[in-house]
Structures are given as C-alpha cells and as structure tokens.
Amino acid sequence: MKPFKIPESVLVVIHTPDLDVLLLERADHPGFWQSVTGSKDRADEPLVETCVREVAEETGIVIGSADVPLANLHDWQLGNRYEIYPVWRHRYAPGVTSNLEHVFGLTVPPGVAITLAPREHLRYRWLPYAAAADACFSPSNAEAILQLPRLRPTTSR
C-alpha cells in the first residue's frame, strides 16, 4: 500500500525572462493545466529539495545544472492553504481536507528542453503569463502566475 501524501506541497511557476510560463496538462484530468506541483516526500524534506525533485520528475529540467542554476529558483514567500479537491482526497490520510502550498518561481532560458513524465502529464505549452493564468484550473496557481511580474528577480542568470 502506498503511503499517504503529506498535505504540504510546492507550486513552482517555471518561466522565461520574458515571462512566458510553462504549463502542463494533467494525465489524470485532461484539460486541466497547471504549473509544477508536488508534495513533500517526508515531513522534514526541505522545500527547495521538494522543488528540485518535482521539477526534474515532471519536466526533466535539472535545477543546479549549467543552464538552470539553483540561484534561478526563488522562494516567493507565499503560502496558500486550500481545500483538497474531493477527487484527490483518497491520496491523503483520512480526515485530511486541506493542503499548505508554498510558491516558488524558476527562471529558465528560452528553449529549455522539456521531458514530461507520461504518467503525470500529457502535453506542455508556453504561454505569456496572463494567458497562462487564464488557462490554469487551480485558482491558487492562476493567482501565483499573476504575481510573476512583481515577484520575478530583476536579474536572471
């Protein structure tokens, strides 16, 4: 039996310096577009480690590589507590109904290679940030993307 998910996760808004945002279409719910998300693997897992792991698993982007240094990952110091959609509550311990999501931004170079995890995502697309926010099924994801012009670093490597 698979262990229950920890109700603490990261949301990583992956974007280019020109504010094009990467969105992924969920394999388990076609038509649902989102940024990279994922729960901690263990309660004491540092959030940065969760981001690095989830981005690599879902997109193939290696944070800490020459193209995407760790310095390009930014903790936006935003947290969202939201109700877990009923369709996904079976993944959590009985009685768990909410999740705490920590928001990060990741600047990547235009044209960075994307390799999807086929069990998780069907397709990806790059959209200007406002269009990406409109395309997200999750209100917290859309709100995070709309913060991009304000929260992105002024210099990117």
Results as ranks from 00 to 15, higher is better:
1 M>N: 10
2 K>F: 08
3 P>M: 03
4 F>A: 08
4 F>C: 03
4 F>Y: 15
4 F>D: 06
5 K>W: 02
5 K>D: 08
8 E>W: 03
9 S>M: 12
10 V>D: 01
10 V>M: 04
11 L>N: 06
17 P>L: 00
17 P>W: 06
17 P>S: 09
17 P>M: 10
21 V>R: 07
21 V>N: 04
22 L>K: 05
22 L>Q: 05
24 L>H: 06
26 R>P: 00
27 A>C: 03
29 H>M: 03
29 H>R: 15
29 H>Y: 04
32 F>S: 09
32 F>E: 08
32 F>M: 06
36 V>D: 09
40 K>Y: 04
41 D>K: 12
44 D>I: 06
45 E>L: 02
45 E>Q: 15
47 L>R: 09
49 E>D: 10
52 V>G: 03
52 V>W: 13
53 R>P: 00
54 E>F: 01
56 A>F: 09
56 A>S: 11
58 E>T: 08
63 I>V: 15
64 G>D: 01
65 S>H: 07
66 A>E: 15
69 P>L: 05
69 P>M: 06
70 L>A: 07
70 L>H: 14
74 H>S: 09
76 W>S: 11
77 Q>V: 01
78 L>H: 15
78 L>R: 15
82 Y>P: 00
84 I>Y: 15
86 P>I: 04
88 W>M: 08
90 H>L: 00
90 H>T: 02
90 H>W: 11
92 Y>R: 02
92 Y>G: 00
92 Y>M: 02
100 L>I: 05
100 L>H: 14
100 L>W: 15
103 V>D: 02
105 G>N: 05
107 T>E: 07
108 V>Q: 06
109 P>C: 00
110 P>S: 14
111 G>R: 12
113 A>F: 08
115 T>E: 14
117 A>N: 15
117 A>K: 14
119 R>T: 09
120 E>F: 13
120 E>L: 03
123 R>D: 00
124 Y>A: 07
125 R>C: 07
126 W>R: 04
126 W>Q: 10
133 A>L: 03
134 D>Y: 07
136 C>K: 08
136 C>Q: 10
138 S>Q: 05
138 S>T: 02
138 S>V: 00
139 P>E: 11
140 S>L: 08
142 A>R: 13
143 E>S: 05
143 E>Y: 12
143 E>D: 11
146 L>Q: 11
148 L>T: 09
149 P>W: 14
154 T>E: 10
155 T>S: 14
157 R>H: 15
